[in-house]
Structure formats: structure tokens, C-alpha cells
């Protein structure tokens, strides 16, 4: 409770400072609108279908990206982690693909996918899949031999050992990977939307607001929505992790 109060105080102080700077005339309000104006604009926007559609577009793309990412990275991680031969075979490929910044792929994907959201979802997955994949591979390798041996001593079959020992062991690490993937996917989505506004979403809203009429209040309102969404995702997942994974302190490599 006390921490919440402190955090709120910090935020309020920050807003007050922005308000003061905004109104002081240091910079024209046109460039740096004070929070009161931004919030007013935001309230108005939240009543507007077009804006809500943009928010929805980003949220949906995010959900789809993260879903695909999980469906690909978790099974692949379990497999690569369990079968060393396979891991050696694909390590070179992974090491080649991973450092390619997903932003560098934007032109390519834009050309291929035109205005459809498939392109940005692909790029978000591309960027987000790595932390999840590596966390999963790492976690499978970390399963204690003694645990597996104990299970063997109780005549637990190989398949059951995967299901009942390896997977539970991996869960906290996967969760941490998922958290990283979630914020990465959001960042990439909004970036792609800004660079390719025809795909819609908060990013394109921000881009359009800034380029056409130069509405900085709308730009900041859009940014605020993206920020709050990102914050809620992370807080929600951290909370879920604390609630459900009670046996391990937040596992995995951050």
C-alpha cells in the first residue's frame, strides 16, 4: 500500500513538473503541451471510434504475435533443450538469425505484406521469439539429473518424465521469457506501425498525428496509451507469476 502511495506521489510530482514546464512558456505549448491538455485530448479520443479501433488493432496484433511466439518458441525450446544433437545442428542458424534487428527487416516485410497486419505480426514474433526460445532451451538443460533419476527410480516413463518433471521445471523460466517477449513484441509492433502507417494501430495514429497537423497533444496521448498498455502487460504477468508459481522466486534469466 505504502509503495503504491509512493509510486503515485512520484507520478503526480512528475506530471506537475511537466504541467509547470508546459505552461511556463519555455517551449511553445504547441510543441510541448502540458499534461492537462494531453489528458483532455485523451479523454476525447477515448470516445472516438477511430482511435479505439487503432488501439484495438495494436492490442489484437500483440495478442496474436505473443500467441504465435509462444506456440513456436516453447515447443521448439523443449525439443532443442532435450535433444543435444538437434541443438548443435541449429545453433549456427540461430546465431546467424538472432542478431538481425527486426527493424532492418521492415522494408522487406512491408513490400511482401503490403498493408496487411501480417507483416508487423511477423516482425513482432521475429523479435520476441528469441528471449522465449533461449530461456526455454536453457531451462531444459538445467533440470537436475538427480530429479530425473528420482523419477526413474519410481518407474516414471520417459514421456512422463518430460511431462511431469521437465515441463514443470521449465515453467518459471518460460514465464520470464514470456514477459520479455511481451514487451519486445509491443515495442516492435508500435515501431512498425509508425514506419508503415497503412497497417493501422497506435503507432500509425501517433505518426499521422505528428506528421499532418503536428498535433503533439494527440501524439502524447497515443504514446501514453501505448505506455499504459505496456505497463499493464508487465504488471499483470508479474502478478500472475507471483500468484501461480509460488514454488520458485521469479525464475529464469532476465
Amino acid at each position: 500500500m505504502r509503495n503504491t502511495a509512493r509510486a503515485l506521489t512520484g507520478i503526480l510530482a512528475f506530471l506537475a513538473l511537466c504541467e509547470a514546464v508546459g505552461r511556463s512558456g519555455l517551449a511553445p505549448q504547441y510543441y510541448l503541451p502540458p499534461p492537462s491538455l494531453v489528458l483532455t485530448e485523451l479523454t476525447r479520443l477515448l470516445g472516438q471510434g477511430d482511435f479505439l479501433l487503432d488501439v484495438l488493432a495494436t492490442v489484437l496484433s500483440w495478442v496474436i504475435s505473443l500467441g504465435i511466439c509462444a506456440l513456436v518458441a516453447i515447443p521448439a525450446g523443449l525439443l532443442l533443450g532435450s535433444v543435444p544433437l538437434l541443438r548443435t545442428a541449429v545453433t549456427a542458424l540461430i546465431e546467424f538469425l538472432r542478431p538481425v534487428p527486426s527493424v532492418a527487416l521492415i522494408p522487406l516485410v512491408v513490400v511482401i505484406s503490403a498493408g496487411s497486419p501480417a507483416g508487423k505480426i511477423f516482425l513482432a514474433c521475429y523479435a520476441a521469439v528469441w528471449p522465449l526460445l533461449f530461456n526455454t532451451i536453457y531451462a531444459v538443460g538445467q533440470v537436475d539429473e538427480q530429479l530425473l533419476e528420482s523419477a526413474r527410480a519410481f518407474r516414471v516413463s520417459r514421456a512422463q518424465r518430460l511431462l511431469r518433471i521437465k515441463i514443470p521445471h521449465v515453467v518459471p523460466f518460460v514465464f520470464t521469457g514470456l514477459r520479455l517477449a511481451a514487451s519486445t513484441a509491443l515495442i516492435v509492433l508500435v515501431s512498425v506501425e509508425m514506419l508503415n502507417p497503412s497497417t493501422g494501430g497506435i503507432g500509425s495514429f501517433i505518426y499521422v498525428a505528428s506528421s499532418g497537423a503536428g498535433r503533439m497533444d494527440q501524439v502524447l496521448a497515443g504514446t501514453l496509451v501505448a505506455g499504459v498498455f505496456g505497463y499493464l502487460i508487465n504488471a499483470g504477468m508479474a502478478g500472475a507469476q507471483r500468484r501461480w508459481i509460488t514454488w520458485a522466486p521469479a525464475g529464469g534469466t532476465a
Partner: peptide, 30 residues
């Protein structure tokens, strides 16, 4: 193969209990 009516208590007990299972879950496991 591991005989059916055999049980083992390992030396490294700390590493042989399943951390995600409660005490009861661990005992029920086999």
C-alpha cells in the same frame, strides 16, 4: 529395469524432492 516394489532414498535429498510439488505432492508422486 527398476523393480516395482523397490524405493530409493537418495543421498542428495535436497535435489531429489520436486520443488514445484508440495510435501504431500512429493509423497504421492510415486
Amino acid at each position: 529395469g527398476v523393480p516395482e516394489d523397490l524405493a530409493v532414498v537418495f543421498q542428495d535429498y535436497g535435489r531429489s524432492l520436486f520443488p514445484w510439488m508440495s510435501v504431500r505432492g512429493n509423497v504421492e508422486f510415486p
